[in-house]
Design a protein around this nucleic acid. Sequence first.
RNA 1: CGGGGCGUGGCGCAGCCCGGUAGCGCGCACGGUUUGGGUCCGUGAGGUCCCCGGUUCGAAUCCGGGCGCCCCGACCA
Length: 480
Amino acid sequence: MSEQAVTAQSEDFSRWYNEIVYRADLAAPSPVRGCVIIKPYGYEIWEGIKAGLDRRFKATGHQNAYFPLFIPESYIKREAQHVEGFSPELAVVTHAGGKELEEPLVVRPTSETVIGEAFSDWIQSYRDLPLLINQWANVVRWELRTRPFLRTAEFLWQEGHTAHATHDEAEAETLQMLDIYAEFAIDDAAIPVIKGEKSRLERFAGALRTYTIEAMMRDKRALQSGTSHNLGQNFAKAFDIRYLTESNLQEYCWTTSWGLSTRMVGAVVMTHGDDKGLRLPPKLAPHQVVIVPITRRDDQLTAVMDTVERLDRELQAAGIRVHVDRREGQSPGFKFNDWEMRGVPVRMEIGPKDVENNNAVLARRDLPGRQGKQFVPQAGIVDVVTALLDEIQANLLDDAREFRDRNIHDVANYDELKQVVAEGAWARAWWGGSDEDELTVKDETGATIRCFPFDQPDQSGKCVLTEKAAERIALFAKAY
RNA sequence: CGGGGCGUGGCGCAGCCCGGUAGCGCGCACGGUUUGGGUCCGUGAGGUCCCCGGUUCGAAUCCGGGCGCCCCGACCA
C-alpha cells in the first residue's frame, strides 16, 4: 500500500469509492474501456449474493438455464419499446469467422427476446404454465460513463423470465420476486431497501409495470438495487408465446422478468463503508473472522501458532469462514489496518499473553477502535463469535436504516422539495404530475422519482408540483 | 458528441520551458532487525519514456500527425 489511509468519505465520496474498490482488492482495472476485472475478494462477495438469491429462487420453484450470449439483431427489433430503450447501448458483432455476417449479432443487453423466442416453442398448453426460468449470465450495455460495479459496460447478473396464464398470476410472480430481492437485501446484505413501483419514465422498455428496491448510499444518493417487471402480453405478442386453455382456446401468455446485478456489490460497499474502508455484513463477507497471530520472538511461535490452528479448526467446524493471516513480512499493526480496510467483520488477535491466559482478543469492525475490542476466554469461542457475527449483521442494518430514515423528508410544496434535494437528501411528496412534469423536476433539481413506495398513506393529497389532486406519494432523489 | 487534463519500471509521479548517461516514492526479491495499531536498515531486479514521421551530431524533452486514457455536461442494472 503506497499511501496509508483512503480518502475520507466526507471529503470526496466518489474518490473514496474508487480507491476502496481497488485497494480492498475487489476489482482491478481492465484493458478494455468501461470494463473491470473482478478479483477473487470481490467475486466472493458476488458468490455470496448468488448463493443467497439462488437458494430463494429454487425455493420458489424456479430452475436455472442458460441462453446464448448472441442475439440475432432482428429479435431485438421485434418489440418496439424494447428496441427504442436499448439500441443506443448495444454492442453488435458484424464480423466473425473472417467474413461479414449475413445478420449482425447483438451481444445481449438482456435476454427477453431470445428467451421469448424459446418460450414460444416450449409452451403449448396451460399444462406447461407457469414456466419459471432464471439464468446467471453476463450482459453488455455500452455505457459512456462507467464506475466499477455500479455501471460497467459488461456486468454479471441474474435474469429471471417467467410465463403465466393470467395477468394476476404474472403480477403475483413479479411482486413475489421483488419481495425476494428485498428480503435478501435486508437479511443478507443488511441494506434497508424500499420497495416500490417505478414511474412511467423509469419503467423498463416494454414493461407494463416495473417494481424496484431502492437503497440509500452513504452519500445519500439512491441506488436502484434490483428490479422486477410485469411485461404484460407485450413480449408474448412480439414472440408469439401462446398456450391452449382448458377449453381449447389460443391465448397469449403473460410474462415477467426480474434482475439483480453485480451492482449489489457496489451497494454493499456504499451502504456500509466508512472512512477506514469496507464494512462487510457477516453473511456476505468472504472472511467472517481473520486471525492475526502475534509472535514476539521465535521461541513463542510454536505456542502461538498451535493455539491459532486449534481456534481456526474449531471455528471452521462450526461453519464460520475463518482466515489465518500467516504473512511474515507484515507487522500486526499493518494487518489490523489492512483487514479493517477490507471490511472483515471480526478480527481475532492471538499473542503470547493470550496463550498464557487462555484468552483471545476480538475486535469488531462495526464499532471503532477500543470500543469494539474485547478479551474473551478461548473456551466457548464458537458461541461468542457466532453471537458477535449476528450482532454485527443486525447492527449494520440498524445503522443503515437509521441513516436512511434521518435523510428522508416529507415535503409539502415544490420549494421544500428543491431545498431537500439540494441538501442531498430524499424528498417524499404527493405526486400527480405527467411525464413532462416529472422531467421538469429532473431538469430543475437533478432528482428523479425513485419509486412510489408500496407503503402509502391512507388519505390522498395535492401534487407537490402541479397542486392537483394526487393519489400516491413518491420518493424523489438523485440517483446513481 | 461538446469542454478540460494526461500518456515516463507493477502503481503514483518528477524530469520537458532551457535538447546531452532516465530519476524519486510505494510495491517486488534477498539479508538482517522488528512484531499487542500502518517497524527500520542495507542490497538488488525491473523502463520500446503511447505510436509514426520530422528537425538535430544528438529527442522523454522541440515541431507535425495519429492513437489511447481520465475528469466534467444529455441516457442506463
